[in-house]
Design a protein around this nucleic acid. Structure first.
Lengths: 209, 209, 209, 209
DNA sequence: CATGAATGAGCGTTCATTCAT
DNA sequence: TATGAATGAACGCTCATTCAT
């Protein structure tokens, strides 16, 4: 069987196996890193033979791509809840940040796994396989949230692209911090980032609520 | 020949070879990543045989450690210039950010190489070799700059540790951005980050709630 | 697959492969020596790829350890038959010598392989891995056979340890002789050694000064 | 310069260098074994560069051949003293054994080095380079001493070749014993071996002096 | 004479992948 | 479906040897 992304899994059993393998891949990536997460290591954690992994996925790269897809899907759903239309832009951006960091706090291994794959998976020519090639939908999404606020006049006149990059950087760095620094205070960090972004987006800093 | 860090290089020729190899290692790390930067690849770029690299360095780990040391040394010197004592804290922090991002703009491959090594080099037990274990001097340094401002009253009352993490995240993300996004405007980003940090550290948010 | 010594082989196929590889390793050790018996050479003789050897054994050291174990087990069984309890001590010692030299004559490559491994396998610190460290059970066993004879009065008063060393030296040297000297007469040598040892252990050297 | 064995060394300095290197090679062989005694290790012990060793000897094999030659020469001289013509055969054989074991006791490293080289140095085709090919002068010498005794009637009727092999085996094994067993009593062993050989060679065992 | 820079072949090992069962 | 046997390529590394200086 080949894993045609986007095609519905044939059976429940099959889907469950795939999920199980993806979960074990995430565990391995988070604990022993990209190079350490060999097929043998992932299979060992899943309690199956190496062949099974090759059977359900079209090789290691395909499996790691599904790790990305899986985590992005779940994180995206959690974030979408907090950035639903109809709210005022400031609340949307605040919700975006809080949802991102909350997901991080609840699923640190998932995020760590995504970071490992995104930073290391490469094509044979050496270029990043999942690198921000061209568009980067994650960044574009956040940038759009900021532009929405500017369009309605709720936000001031700042460089939306740059601020989006800054926010993503501030969010992404928290993953590594969480993994290695037991003293890291995620709640305090969330509060600070929200506060900083509010100041940065405020249309009238001197009359901030 | 062994690479006794801190010991004076025996000859000019030797030092030159070591620098050349380090430069090629940086190039390889930036272009094809940690796993792709094999001894063979580095040797190929240097136009020498694999044995030469083992001759000048005590193995791959030692070479990559020297890559870190080399870049940190040069970046640290550039940053130290802009954060010299005697200035007011706001200028120091601004200088810190500008120096970091300027180094990034001038030496993107060096920074990318450091990121590759720091994110991937692991000990035999699987733990990150250069990971922020315990103290993280880079972060502690920035945190201290912020605390200095708070101590003098130049800065307000914020969580210095969290802001330091935020700033480092905003700086570090710029490396990946620069490497993959040709439209990335480093100057605009620098300006925005400086402005955001100024607002975050401002001692007198007098209209703020 | 790991080679858990003492654990039952999982399948018949696996056990057969392991035996085949051990046999080829013995052949290689006997013919081209310790350094020449590389994984590639052993794999070549077995008609498989290098990876197979690593698959069935936990590296070269583990394989060579199993060579020792395998030969010792078979030789030990052959010797035990001839040194069964209940016989008089002189018969036991004679049986010991004859069984050793008979095994040598029937399995010269096996013994040569053991000699290669025992003489050359070293720990990372340089010390012999299978060297007579501390007790040397082979020597101790023979020494005990001699002491048993002394205890019953069947043997005279000689230095049992020294005679054991002498006998082992006389046995071990026959391996190299057999391998390189086509004129070596094993039967005559066995007869002489038995005769010499009988004189040395004789309880009644009544005409002796 | 090439080391044409048998040609007189050009200068005193040169000869001294060669002796120094041979001495260090012996040391290395005795301490870290055949594989561990690399050119680099030998050069390190001699306090010179690797090139020097290659300069004074025609490669590693040539150097190790000279190690053999050097030790054999010195041991042979010591043995010759004790086996001078004109003595009765029993004294000659006794002298041979005592001289061998005395040399071993006084120069254990030299003998250990010889054992390492003789057991491991091989030709490209895998055959032993210094193995007892064809004649084995050492063994033939001892065999002749025994035959001399038989010819004069001093010794009885035994298989001289076999007894020579036995004696050599008993002597050679003492080297390994001495190196690894601190409790080994060389004097006692020498006494036992001499006594055993006297019994074995005695023309009239029941009238032994 | 002596050095040390450099090579190139071979080492043991790992691992993604394939495939017969 | 699932296994595990097997491959083959690449890895980091060591070492005897060569050679310009």
């Amino acid at each position: 069987m080949r894993s045609d992304i986007g095609e519905r899994a044939r059976t429940f059993t099959e889907a469950a196996r795939r999920v199980q393998i993806i979960r074990c891949a995430i565990e391995a990536l988070a604990e022993v890193g990209y190079a350490g997460a060999s097929l043998a290591e992932i299979a060992r954690r899943a309690g199956v033979s190496k062949g099974v992994v090759s059977y359900y996925f079209d090789g290691r790269d395909d499996l790691l791509g599904h790790v990305l897809l899986d985590v992005y899907t779940r994180a995206g759903a959690a974030i979408a809840e907090r950035t639903a239309a109809g709210q005022d832009p400031a609340a949307v951006v605040r919700g975006y940040i809080e949802a991102n960091l909350a997901f991080l706090g609840e699923h640190p291994a998932d995020v760590a796994a995504v970071v490992e794959v995104a930073a290391n998976a490469r094509r044979p020519d050496g270029s990043l396989r999942f690198g921000p090639g061209g568009e980067d939908p994650v960044l574009a999404h956040l940038e759009q949230l900021l532009r929405d606020g500017q369009a309605t006049g709720a936000f001031g006149d700042f460089d939306a692209r740059s601020l989006a990059i800054l926010i993503r950087g501030a969010i992404d760095t928290a993953s590594g911090r969480l993994a290695t620094d037991p003293a890291f205070d995620l709640a305090a960090y969330t509060g600070l980032l929200v506060s900083v972004v509010e100041k940065a987006t405020n249309a009238l800093p001197w009359e901030q609520s």
